[in-house]
């Protein structure tokens, strides 16, 4: 029993060390910000071009629904890479050698790093997930031809967005949930790709997918 409680205590100590580390070196910044920057870059800057390149596939579903799972995988991957890097630094600095000559629970050295990485990656995934949902929030469909409703469509509804950020979830919701006859129904990704970019285009009165027209600055005005 005492062995077990020592193991827990050692692991907690190592976890505390890892959290202190991530707050002081810049790994937390990389792990948290890089996925978000990549998401913003791939969605708002290159999103139009890539979305257009998807062609028929994109018409079936929103570009963001393809992007989001990739961002998540990248987030987890960069979290793993950061852990490997931290461990390597530890080994090179000789502090692990010191730990190995102490009567501690040996797996705690690794366990602390892995738990710390898990926490960082979870925060990062939640943040980028929130960002994805923000980017693909549900829109209201306008009555055709109305410019006023075009601006209505563009207002993102963040409260319903989280569930739609990943592709598999989007597929589950491919069927419209409300009657098409209703003038205000929650729209699905199946019907609209990259909603905010689309709304930009539609309000501009154009249906062509031109990357130059999908720029962040043009989108900024309506969103």
């Amino acid at each position: 029993m005492s062995n077990f409680s020592f193991a827990l205590r050692d692991s907690a100590t190592m976890l505390r060390r890892d959290v202190q580390h991530s707050l002081r070196n810049f790994s937390i910044v990389f792990v948290l910000l890089v996925p978000i920057i990549m998401l913003l870059l791939l969605n708002y800057v290159f999103g139009g071009a890539i979305g257009a390149g998807l062609g028929g596939v994109a018409r079936g579903s929103a570009y963001i629904d393809y992007l989001a799972p990739g961002i998540f995988v990248m987030t987890v991957g960069s979290g793993c890479a950061a852990t490997a890097l931290n461990l390597c630094t530890d080994m090179a600095e000789g502090i692990v050698t010191r730990f190995r000559t102490m009567a501690i629970f040996r797996a705690s050295v690794l366990l602390g790093q892995v738990l710390g990485s898990l926490i960082r990656t979870l925060i990062s995934v939640v943040l980028s997930g929130w960002r994805c949902s923000w980017a693909s929030g549900p829109r209201r469909v306008p009555s055709p031809g109305s410019r006023r409703s075009a601006s209505l469509r563009c207002s993102p509804s963040r409260s319903h967005g989280w569930g739609r950020c990943s592709g598999w979830w989007a597929k589950r919701r491919r069927e419209p949930t409300a009657s098409p006859s209703s003038s205000n129904y929650w729209h699905t990704p199946a019907a609209h790709s990259s909603a905010r970019n689309r709304c930009q285009l539609e309000s501009a009165g154009s249906r062509s997918f031109s990357p130059s027209r999908l720029s962040l600055t043009r989108c900024g005005g309506c969103c």
């Binding site: 060390r17 002081r24 000789g94 050698t97 010191r98």
Partner: peptide
């Protein structure tokens, strides 16, 4: 053990 390597944690 105090080795010729410096076994201190530089971030703490």
């Amino acid at each position: 053990v105090t080795g010729q390597f410096s076994a201190v944690d530089d971030l703490l």
